[in-house]
Design a protein around this nucleic acid. Structure first.
Lengths: 134, 134
DNA sequence: ATGAATGCAAACTCTTTGCACATTG
DNA sequence: CAATGTGCAAAGAGTTTGCATTCAT
């Protein structure tokens, strides 16, 4: 566990595949699974490989350029323009996901960690419920 | 979505396995994965099978007796009803876990859910970091 | 030229399912 | 006695990884 917490883009090369993934991701409204993204790219003509899509998405997420969350057994990604840190409000019933900002929680998490002598604090915050439509 | 939303326990039989899973789940603080729960049960002497644990957990969740969420590729379950609610501060390096109370966060989570029309709000809050000893 | 990125397929992890046998009501 | 639950092992779904080749710098 001695790895780069905020994995810097050390010597990351620019390939059309990487660009394609980034662009495809940006062209999506919400969260997309790696597989769906891959299928879309193939349909659009890219002979890109599935593994490459997974790797590109992982790198994007590591670089903070994409948000990553898991729902129903698969990884979902979404372009994340700002390094803005946010969380999710998820409907337990229909799976609808809203983005929420957690201003007060950020500070609280930091202070809790600091109070207990923890460094490099990160946190996971997700709120679940039943949305109005369900 | 035409299934029993609140899946009634139609002819659900009582077996010691079911009881063991329910009890093991209740004895846990937070969310546990099916596999961890299974391992714990085996260590405790139960010759219960993994598939049975999965099925029991699925039933408990369907009956509303357990909460279910996914994190990092695995399904996590928690007894629902033991509303004793606290969170954890976890060391990424040595795994040490402290229990923390999240006073301000509770209110925040409730209000975020309410603001968006969500009912039965629950939340997952965990803070990760490197503890003082590491 | 040099090493990171790609593609393919095999390997992995977690979860679900088929089927024969044991249990419950 | 009929039907549900269990256990095992095999099957699935999604994701990751090894390795030879290709490509960006």
């Amino acid at each position: 566990m001695t790895e780069n917490a905020m994995g810097a883009a050390t010597g990351r090369r620019r390939t059309w595949q990487r660009d394609a993934v980034r662009e495809a991701l940006g062209g999506q409204d919400g969260f997309v699974s790696a597989q769906v993204l891959h299928a879309g790219l193939r349909e659009a003509g890219s002979p890109i490989g599935l593994a490459t899509v997974y790797r590109a998405l992982a790198d994007l997420a590591a670089d903070g350029a994409a948000d990553h969350l898991q729902l129903d057994g698969e990884s979902l990604y979404r372009a994340c323009g700002s390094a803005d840190h946010h969380h999710h409000l998820i409907c337990r019933s229909c799976g609808k996901t809203l983005e929420i900002s957690a201003g007060p929680v950020e500070a609280w998490a930091r202070s809790v960690a600091a109070d207990n002598g923890f460094r490099e604090a990160e946190h996971v915050v997700d709120v679940f419920g039943i949305c109005a439509d369900c």
